[in-house]
Simulated assay, not measured.
Amino acid sequence: MKRIFVKPRELVVPGTLLAQGPYKNGRGTFREGNRIYSTVVGLVEVRGDLIRVIPLEGPYMPEVGDNVLGKIVDVRFSNWAVDIGAPYEASLRVQDATEERIDLMKTDLRKIFDIGDIIYAKIKGYNEINQIDLTTKGMPFHGGPLRGGQLVTITPSKVPRLIGKGGSMINLIKKLTNTRIIVGQNGWVWVSGRNDELEKLAIEAILKVDRESHTRGLTDRMKEFLTERLRALKEEGVIDEVPQIEEKSDEKGEAE
């Protein structure tokens, strides 16, 4: 018999029966016979036949296909060591970072990525010995590291709430603060604005979502919060006008 016993985004604890039948068990779950149980305290996510639980706390746990932000922490002979906020260090190999043929005996890899650089990458592989392989090919900003801006961290399980359904929440913050924002599924968020005060406001909004992600009416409150702060900045002469935007509320808080 094929059956799911929980609802998407439902909060579960270790040992909760999630489903039975020919489902695939993903992160945060284990299988016993034909039944799947939760191994962590977290939120249920159902994607087709895949069932997983996103932990509410703890470090980011990698999954192949995730888009993440990372910081270069070491430059080696043929690869870079990258911190992505996971329990284990990730690796970006030369062949996964550039289309060019690189002579490793003659090329200083620091000219491509150096220690401290922030990159936007995809998790290409993650195996049972905790080896995490990244790739930047095909990703935005493939040509180099992210320049300027600030890096903010939030709880990885709250990333869907920050994005919002159809991108509603993150687009609201971007448009009202006139900033560029990249959200990694590892909970790292890069924010860059031409105006320092608007950049700070965008960061404040992101951290507010992290704190209040469990509450209802957050999108409407966020719009009100940003509008009030923007009016104050206008009165101070920091900005010329307050942007006007109409956004639909997102009470479900799920990214599409």
Rank of each mutant, 00 (worst) to 15 (best):
M1L: 10
M1R: 10
I4Y: 01
R9A: 10
E10H: 03
G15V: 03
G28L: 06
G28A: 06
T29A: 00
F30S: 09
N34R: 14
T39A: 10
V40E: 04
E45V: 15
D49K: 10
I51L: 14
I51R: 01
P55E: 08
E63H: 11
E63K: 12
E63W: 10
G70E: 03
R76K: 15
F77E: 14
F77V: 12
E89N: 09
Q95L: 11
Q95F: 08
D96F: 05
E100G: 03
E100T: 06
K106Q: 12
K106F: 09
T107G: 00
L109C: 08
I112T: 11
G116M: 09
G116R: 08
G116C: 10
I119R: 01
A121S: 12
I123Q: 03
I132A: 04
I132D: 01
K137A: 01
H142N: 13
H142M: 15
G143W: 01
P145Q: 05
R147M: 14
R147C: 03
L151Q: 05
T153L: 06
T155I: 09
G166P: 02
S168W: 08
M169H: 11
T177G: 03
R180D: 15
G184W: 02
G184F: 07
Q185M: 14
Q185L: 13
W188E: 01
V191R: 02
L198G: 05
E199M: 15
L201Y: 09
A202S: 11
I203R: 00
E204P: 00
A205M: 05
I206W: 00
D210N: 15
S213N: 07
R221F: 04
R229S: 10
I239A: 04
I239V: 14
I239H: 07
E241M: 12
Q244Y: 14
Q244N: 12
K252W: 10
